[in-house]
Write a protein that binds this DNA or RNA. Structure first.
Lengths: 135, 135
DNA sequence: ATGGGTGCAAAGTGTTTGCAAGTAT
DNA sequence: ATACTTGCAAACACTTTGCACCCAT
């Protein structure tokens, strides 16, 4: 059977996800990490992110631009600004009852759901308002 | 100002999305289309899917494997089987109040949300049960 | 006749993988 | 010593794009 080793790189990837709490992409994690461990490779970052996700130590968040990673491992929702791309956690509890309700209604075994809100963040709204004044 | 022309290819792409009601990918649409219009190119299919989406004539559905397209244009939720990849519409109404509630709570201007359930479809559940009997 | 659209192929992006060398156990 | 892991680069999968020709208006 295969046993997972504890390597410096894996620890660094984990620590970086914990440190960067703004839902970084694999590449952002890689770039951050490179200043600490210049020889680390993208492949290693991707592989470790996948391993850590399987282990449940970090959480994978699929976004339209790229896969992102989240230090929070409990299920929760996200809110994305379609203008600047910022992603924040939505202050809204996970509604597990939706899963069981849908299971009842469809015959599927529903494991979970992903909920992503889209809109404009306060900063972008403000910026747009200023831009309009000038125009 | 730019005016959109009506071309044979655009009509074919639209008709194919309407005909394939199982949330096809761009490539599936391309392959289907090729039997009718052998010289059509992937680029044209992608371009027209993007145009039709902007026009609101079809709906774009982001899924982990690829972008998919939906003949239903009203907002609705999806249910994906993580085993066979099937995607079906979730029999659950769009909850617009979540958008306004989150807007209140965060200061974002929330335009919409995407909700995707994940689980196992009845067919895969059945198949797994049979497999287990044999093992 | 204009300028948007098409077909083709090349280029882009994000992610995975084959391989030989390195290293945790 | 064993076999998991790494670094590197090539390979992948999906999508976009440059360009010359075509065609709807």
């Amino acid at each position: 059977m295969r046993r997972q080793r504890s390597t410096k790189q894996r620890k660094l990837v984990y620590d970086t996800v914990q440190a960067l709490r703004d839902h970084p992409t694999a590449d952002e994690i890689y770039l951050t990490l490179r200043s600490v461990e210049p020889k680390i490779s993208r492949g290693t970052v991707y592989r470790n992110l996948n391993l850590l996700t399987e282990n449940g130590e970090v959480r994978h968040v699929a976004m339209p631009d790229a896969d992102r990673f989240d230090w929070r491992t409990e299920r929760h929702y996200h809110l994305r600004c379609t203008q600047c791309g910022a992603i924040v956690d939505a202050p809204m509890p996970y509604r597990a009852e939706l899963d069981s309700q849908l299971a009842q209604d469809t015959g599927f075994q529903v494991r979970r759901h992903h909920l992503v809100f889209e809109g404009l963040c306060p900063a972008c709204l403000q910026q747009n308002a200023e831009g309009k004044d000038q125009a």
